[in-house]
Amino acid sequence: MLRHLKPLALASLSLALLAPAPTPAAPRDGGDRLRMVPGRHLPYEYVVKKGDTLWDIAARFLKNPWQWPEIWERNSYITNPDLIYPGDLLVFDQRDGMLKLKVVRAGPQARALPLEAIPTVRAELILPFLNRPGIATDEELKHLPYVLASKDARVIFGQHDVVYARGFDADAAQRYDVVRLGPELVDPGSRRVLGHRLDHLGVAEVLDDGPVRRLRIVEAYQEIRPGDRLLPQPARTGLHFMPRAPAQAVNGVLFAAEQSVNELGQGAVGIINLGTQAGVEPGQVLTVYRSGRRIDDPVTGKPVVLPEEAIGTVMVFRPFARVSYVLVMDSIQAIRLGDSVRSPAAGERQARLER
């Protein structure tokens, strides 16, 4: 019995991620630019299982997993194309020269317990980076309220202490992350400071109103001091995102990592020198390129730079003003700090993985 249609998405995360999918590009040269993974024969069926991710399912079918939204665009009868559940049956087939997808699910008797939609990626890889303050620019920090003092003239504060703070605006929040300026993030090309990592010191709740307010420190991970900044905690709305290519041309560098490493593998988190000011959004997928080596031509003796190579794929999952956290989705060799990132081109993932 055919099962009722049901849509695809990221399970609720503790930070809102909103990324509407852009209108997909039209097929080029009259053909279908979507391609199945080599060795798959149509029609191809797959039953979604608990533990699956959207990226893994897309990579199971498509040479370019980031083209998944184009599949959904071809199914106009699906009203919310960003939710897939364990037990859903995915059927890939080809009609009129176009790759098509049908999503069907079992009747209510097959769902004894409520199910959560499958995540885009393994949540444990990115949740630590969504649950902490992250990165801020100098301009942003200037406008944040800050810890002023305590009533007993102490200069070190901890959990349960009540402190005074100032610098609040009219629509101030009730709960804040207490942060301190961390290391600079410097653009490798321009040498401009793109922002600062923020050390997460604790959490504080506002007790009253006024230009100078009392706050209680409800969590303390490090010593808190006068001058430490207060960053409003984001609303935990659990919105969804879908992997896709950027609508605009994107060209940047992966220049930092969240750990003290120079090389990144699949599942690692890095930082690129592009953020919301450059139009970067959660869910956008970028190709990582390694510059070619410089050698001496064995015939002419003159220096030659070998062509660059595509070596991996990253996905933006948390953008800031000038930088973004990215997750390494796949790679054929270790990704190094200094490798470039650009908008993907159709077919390049096939070329990387089939060499």
Rank of each mutant, 00 (worst) to 15 (best):
D209Y: 10
A257K: 05
L264Y: 04
Y289E: 12
A245E: 09
A247M: 11
L327G: 01
R214D: 06
M242A: 10
R229D: 11
P246C: 07
L201E: 02
V316Q: 01
P211Y: 09
L327C: 04
R318F: 00
E309T: 14
H240A: 11
L231V: 03
E263P: 09
R213M: 12
I272P: 01
Q248A: 15
V323P: 08
L207G: 05
V288W: 06
A268C: 07
I311P: 11
Q259C: 07
I217K: 05
L306I: 00
A204H: 02
S324K: 01
P226I: 05
H240R: 13
F241E: 11
V218D: 03
R293H: 12
M315H: 03
Q284L: 08
S324H: 01
N251G: 13
R318T: 02
E258L: 14
E281G: 10
Q259P: 08
V269G: 04
G270R: 00
P243H: 12
T287L: 12
G270V: 04
L327R: 03
T276S: 13
A204N: 02
Y289M: 13
L274V: 07
R318I: 02
M242C: 11
R294A: 07
Q248I: 14
G238V: 05
P303V: 00
E308F: 10
Q284E: 10
I224P: 06
R293W: 09
E308G: 15
I272L: 06
T313V: 13
N273W: 07
R322Q: 14
R214F: 07
T300G: 00
Y221E: 13
E281Y: 12
G202T: 01
P307A: 08
V269M: 03
Y221H: 09
L274D: 12
E281Q: 15
A249V: 13
R216A: 10
